[in-house]
Design a protein around this nucleic acid. Sequence first.
DNA 1: TTTCATGATTACTT
DNA 2: AAGTAATCATGAAA
Length: 385
Amino acid sequence: MKPALFSVLCEIKEKTGLSIRGAQEEDPPDPQLMRLDNMLLAEGVAGPEKGGGSAAAAAAAAAAGSPTDNSIEHSDYRAKLSQIRQIYHTELEKYEQACNEFTTHVMNLLREQSRTRPISPKEIERMVSIIHRKFSSIQMQLKQSTCEAVMILRSRFLDARRKRRNFSKQATEILNEYFYSHLSNPYPSEEAKEELAKKCSITVSQVSNWFGNKRIRYKKNIGKFQEEANLYAAKTAVTAAHAAAAAVQNSQTNSPTTPNSGFQMKDEEFQLDSAENKNTLLTNMFTGSSGSFNLPNSGDLFMSMQNLNGDSYQGAQVGANVQSQVDTLRHVISQTAGYNDVLGGNPMYSPHGLNGNGGWQDATTPSSVISPTEGPGSVHSDTSN
DNA sequence: TTTCATGATTACTT
DNA sequence: AAGTAATCATGAAA
């Protein structure tokens, strides 16, 4: 009975013709798949373990900004990428395994069935290839979503605007510190920018951005920044006072109020890069409002500044060699020595370097719209009178 | 949710 | 190339 049935089945099969389209089997490399593979390879998700990943990350970082920023975002990017990579690989392995399992399962099934019905090797082959195709389409989905993830990651990191993070408090402190202690000329040199970038763990271009924003915003609404200016002025002044105290320690000028008495601030945190621009600050002070001065001797400079301002400095507190702090010192001294802004109002801090034309250095920008909102000293430069 | 602060970008200018 | 002014987009406080 059984052989008879078997032969019947064979006959039926012969008629239906199983070899429907065998030629289609050799799957031509899907261009879409190729594309995905190439991309994954290029991004370092597929391919060799670590080398590709970091290379791609480096490329991405380089494209993001200046080539010298090897900071947080870089490693962050790398970490996220390797995470994607790991997920991708485990998923891929899972699929592979599942595919193999399923294939053997089907094979076993077919083998079992081959006892009761005729199954040609071609049929088995076809079955297998169908399974493989199914799984590879799943794989393709995996690859596609991985690619998407990488793209999103990249765009997140490349388009930093989208993922704007505020700088750390400390970084802002440092930047503000510099800004207000160089208020007369808040244009850090390239080296200074690099230094600041390092200190703040940000990029040089971020420092430039910050100063660009700060300058413009400060200028736009000086009143708003008064408090901040005072705060940082005081901070730097303390540092300066310390330095001054140290500088004139032997000159026995008995100041009535010792600067460091009961006024402890974390000096180390606010110490200024005293090395460079000892003179630039002063010179720039003058260039800000009265043309460019090029005095060769910083001591002379210091003296001439005193004269120009008509203020008398308490030399004991200031010290003869602390030019880099003149800006802020002058402010502090103005408070203690009864310095009053001519315009009245809130005479706490006046922007020495700002000229009436809306520029720090030259009167090139013709914006005559100085905000009328009581900017004490917005047009006032105390060296001009 | 609205509003303000702030880092980044863009179009110009110098 | 570096700055300015305006603007965008997001983070955080209200």
